[in-house]
Design a binder for these strands. Sequence first.
DNA 1: CCGAATGAG
DNA 2: CCTCATTCG
Lengths: 388, 388
Amino acid sequence: MDDQMEEYRKRQREQYQKRQQDGTEQTEAPADEKGNSGQVSAAAAADLVEASVQDAGAASSSAGASAGTGASPPSGSLKLVTWNVDGLDEGQIQLRHTALADWIKTHKPDIVYLQEVVYPTLRILRKHLTSTYDIIIPTNPRPDPSDMESLTRGIPCAYFCAVLLNKQSIQACGAPDSKWYPQSCMMRHLLSIRARPTAASAKDAELLLGTSHLESTAEYKNERVNQLSIVATNMEGWLSDPDTPSVCTVIVGGDLNLRDPEVKAAGVPSHIRDVWELLGKPDSCRYTWDMAANDNLVMQGGGKPRCRFDRLFIGQRPQGSASPPSGRYRWVPQSIEMVGTDRLSSCGRFISDHFGLLVKLELAVPTEGGEGGGSKGQKAKAKAKKGK
Amino acid sequence: MDDQMEEYRKRQREQYQKRQQDGTEQTEAPADEKGNSGQVSAAAAADLVEASVQDAGAASSSAGASAGTGASPPSGSLKLVTWNVDGLDEGQIQLRHTALADWIKTHKPDIVYLQEVVYPTLRILRKHLTSTYDIIIPTNPRPDPSDMESLTRGIPCAYFCAVLLNKQSIQACGAPDSKWYPQSCMMRHLLSIRARPTAASAKDAELLLGTSHLESTAEYKNERVNQLSIVATNMEGWLSDPDTPSVCTVIVGGDLNLRDPEVKAAGVPSHIRDVWELLGKPDSCRYTWDMAANDNLVMQGGGKPRCRFDRLFIGQRPQGSASPPSGRYRWVPQSIEMVGTDRLSSCGRFISDHFGLLVKLELAVPTEGGEGGGSKGQKAKAKAKKGK
DNA sequence: CCGAATGAG
DNA sequence: CCTCATTCG
Ligand SMILES: [Mg+2]
Ligand SMILES: [Mg+2]
């Protein structure tokens, strides 16, 4: 049972060593090198024979559920979940990831951030979700063998992040972006995509969505802090990018492997907030990786560590006087809960060694003369204080 | 043989635990609480029965050897050695430290920085060197049991730093200062003393001398970086202290346990220089702690690590137009060599697991119209470049 | 008093 | 994919 630790380490090591050697050999890359915007289509997925075979029935999204039509006042809600789904644990992988797909079909989140996706689990997700979700994975930069820097990171990535967008409620705008942390020895990356809700009442309130799996283990604290700084810098850039004035809110999160002091160390600016903190730090979803509550992974020796590894950061476009129209919108967190906390009856294990975090957001228009709609959670107050 | 490692760890742990408990009990403190300026006199050393019993014959110092008399042009040379003498290793301690005292009597350095002095070895040094050297050890602040912060550092210190000043060539000015790093879990401290050469030709070129043993082991990198920052801040303060305008040069060093990246991390200002680097980074004295060259300590498992743990930093008082007269002097490193590299014939071991660093300095007066004397080493050039 | 790896809580 | 302590090269 606890050769999983060994397995984990082994895989990390294998990948690390691999990049030293065969930086040029493309095996099964998470890429698209076909210019299809990094969004996986059935056509691009040559390795995917079962794609679209068994799509879930069309799920009605909750986003825009409260939306009016046409020029009605802006309104809308979104559900976002982030989850490290532990594709590196091969035990009951089929059962666990079928259950994950079922969970997604049942709860119909609008946005799904996944970490530790591997090809076998990607196939499962595609099989069940292709008709209802766009599945976005990182591009895999083609390594240039004469470029050492490229060689150190351009190799096929054995596990990676993914963003799923509910086709009914939200759609990708433009190509996703994959930034590979240059100093990572675990091929960690930041996967991001701009997205627009489909509901007419919310379609002008675009989001910049990003997910990442920051460098793991205490040993790589320094690199993880660097990576978080990169994340924060990207978030700041997106929040002030004049090319995408319609983006009002940036949400980046995932398995960040963070210990609290590291957030300060990274210098995350104060206007970028931790969603769990914004929502009052509920104890019920503090420890997203908790060996006392989840025995998918068992420490040798019987220790029961737990950590708040999975986090979401949110930033709102500044509302300067000269801000674009989207500057008046903001997606505001309303609630947060932990998911995946039940054992699967089929195998007695959990979907992952991490729990997921499910966050509900509502669209708010905090201009004078009344709330634009939906922003009546505890978050509304925090936002009002924060707004200039 | 390699229960030394165990011993080391054990002692460190004991001390750490001790401070949690008996913060108030004074055992054998390195102190003077008698207001004698921290400089150990035979009278203050109640535990020292053999003091002055067997003094070495008066050694003629090299400092001022080249000095003229009276109002002749400033000139002078000084020899400074820094050495972690591993008093925590009790093996052959008497032989090893008698050999250390012999080395000092033979080479007659003007300034000696020692680390890991313990009471038994202090007695040996006193026995052989009291008549020829002033032996300065840290004050031991009396802990106030109601003051938690004091409790964490005010306990008797089992091993400590010392500064020895050759009575013939240099004399302490005022009281020494002991700064205890507040976050140290090893009771580490910075021991400093202002000193004036006795030679008439150099008596206006005072030095601020400091030695320290920074937090050991890779594990305590962060605390060590903090401590180095404190050292650098103190050096800057001394270099600009209007109360001691006669101090022209500050030299602080010892067993700093540094790995190269930590120096940057500590933000040591660029005008504070590493003496070994100033002198061209000679390979012959790079590794002051070298298991390949010194088997006083043997790693279990047979590893042969080596590090440049022992370092000296030097800073010169800025020569602003309004600078005091001493601003025109500077003690300039001329050469550096490693000492203690021979096995003792008596026991086949080395004096310490660390080698010592012996540095020769000469007094320079780099004003326009010719060198003031002595500054013709390779260092003179570096100084000339550095001088404003 | 190294750094990487291992083992136990 | 925890922390500490220990082992091993
Ligand atoms: Mg994992
Ligand atoms: Mg030592």
